[in-house]
Amino acid sequence: MSFDVPDDLRYLDTHEWVRATDATAEIGISDFAQDELGDVVFVELPDEGAELTAGEDFGVVESIKAVSDVYAPVSGTVTAVNDRLRDEPELLNEDPYGDGWMLEIDLTDESELDDLLSPADYRDQIE
């Protein structure tokens, strides 16, 4: 089975993705991650203004029989939260790189992006 790994994103080995634009970034979980989880039924995310630290968990994704922590690929301050996930957690399954985005943050240190996996490396990891 092949999973979608968009070329314009960077990845964490725990299956989170980052879409960086200048000093801000969007964060979500990968197509592979949503498939592993199965039907997502609940997403717990931090509030706007929360501080994320690279490598530390910031939220929880629940399916029927599993609970998974979600880790911050990079450090930053949360500037927007995808509130639609509250009532429509299925967006994580249906469109993990689009409507299923989780957070938008202001990056603390753009150089942290260099520590993340390239699409090719991430593809190698999940195959």
Binding site: F42, E62, S63, I64, K65, A66, V67
Partner: peptide, 12 residues
Amino acid sequence: LQTREQHIRKER
């Protein structure tokens, strides 16, 4: 909502 319970969430 069994993810709250011990058989799934264990020590949490």
